[in-house]
Structure formats: structure tokens, C-alpha cells
Simulated assay, not measured.
Amino acid sequence: MSTLHGIGLLLLAVIAGAVVPFQSAINANLGRGLGHPLWATLASLLVSILVLLPIMLAMRVPLPSVAFISKAPLWMWAGGAFGVCFISLALVLLPKLGASGFMALALAGQVVASLVLDHFGWFGLVQRQVSLPRVLGALLLIGGVVLIQLSAAPSKALAAAS
């Protein structure tokens, strides 16, 4: 992999992470407006379909193999359930914890779960053993999460307006 290509992939990963707090904040407002967080979860997923289908049609993405669909293990279909879990929890927790608090805590959960997934090579991932430097890196990230959350008291003007 060329250095330029590698940097591009890293930047795309940063962008993928950067859109999550925007999505969560927008969906939290939508949930309040619609009267329940689960309505906002459904709306978010429906908009996702409406955005994705034209892109897939324009790219002429071929239909998946019926043979694969019929033989795929059930765990391969769980991604959608995890998406509903994340979106719904973000809708409920982001207004209470703030964007930085929620995202920091979500990141801590992602880092810990990622270390476990890598260590065991679950779901077809390349196995990457847990090592002292990886654990220390995770602890530093989690320490940062604690600092972000402990210093995240809302301003008095905003608290009075709520």
C-alpha cells in the first residue's frame, strides 16, 4: 500500500468517526420532535435506505448471490441490530451526557471491544494479539474519556435555559 493511499484511508476513517456525533445530535433532536427516540431511529434508517439505493443503482452494484444469502450464518445479519442499538442509545444518552461525553464513552467501548475482536480474530478478522503497548494505548484513551466526562459540566446559561 502506497503512503499516499494509506494516508487517504486514515483520513476517510477520521471522517467516518467525525460524522457520528453530528448524526447523533441531529437524531436526538429528531427524536424529541417525533415524540420518541425509536421513531428517530426508524427515520434515520429509512433515510439511509433512500440515500443508499440511488447510489447503488448509479454504481450498478450487482445483486448478491442467493446461495450466499441462504447459507450465511445468522451472526452475519446482526450488524443491523447493532446499528439500531447504537442509534437508539445515542438518541437517549447524547442529550444527557453531551456530544463529547457520549462519544468519548462510546469510543472507550469501541476500543475495548476492538481489542477483544482483534485478539481472538472473531468474525473473520486478522488475529492481533493483545500486547502491553495496545493495552496501554487503550488505557490512555479511556483516561482521556474520564477527563472529558469529568470536565463536561454544562454551562450555567445553557442549564438555566433547559
Rank of each mutant, 00 (worst) to 15 (best):
V111A: 04
L147Q: 09
R134N: 04
A28T: 01
Q110E: 09
K156D: 15
L42R: 02
V84L: 09
T3I: 12
L30A: 14
A106G: 03
L140V: 13
F120I: 09
A67R: 15
G17N: 09
K96W: 03
M56R: 13
W77F: 15
S65Q: 10
G124L: 05
L46S: 14
I55Q: 10
I55N: 05
L132G: 10
Q23N: 12
L93A: 13
L132I: 15
V116W: 11
I142K: 03
I55E: 09
L94R: 00
L125H: 15
C85P: 01
A106N: 11
L105I: 12
I15A: 15
G121H: 10
W77Q: 10
A160P: 03
A40G: 04
G143Y: 08
V111Q: 02
A40C: 05
S131T: 15
S65L: 04
M59H: 13
G83K: 01
K71R: 14
F68I: 12
Q129F: 08
L132S: 11
A138I: 01
T41Y: 00
A16N: 11
L30V: 15
P73A: 06
L53M: 14
I49Y: 14
P154M: 09
N27K: 04
G98K: 03
M103Q: 02
L4N: 12
N27W: 01
G109C: 05
L94F: 02
P154I: 04
A25C: 04
V126S: 14
V130I: 15
Q23M: 13
V14C: 10
M76A: 14
N27G: 07
I142G: 01
L91H: 06
V116Y: 12
N27I: 00
L115V: 06
W122Y: 12
R32S: 11
V145S: 01
M103F: 03
Q149G: 06
L89D: 01
I55R: 10
N29T: 09
L57K: 15
G35V: 02
L9V: 13
F22E: 08
G17C: 08
A43S: 13
L34K: 04
K96V: 12
I69A: 14
W122E: 04
N29A: 13
C85W: 12
W75V: 07
F68L: 14
L89W: 07
Q110M: 08
L46E: 10
F86P: 00
K96I: 11
G137Y: 08
W39R: 03
L93Y: 05
L11N: 07
L38Q: 03
F123C: 07
A40M: 02
A159C: 06
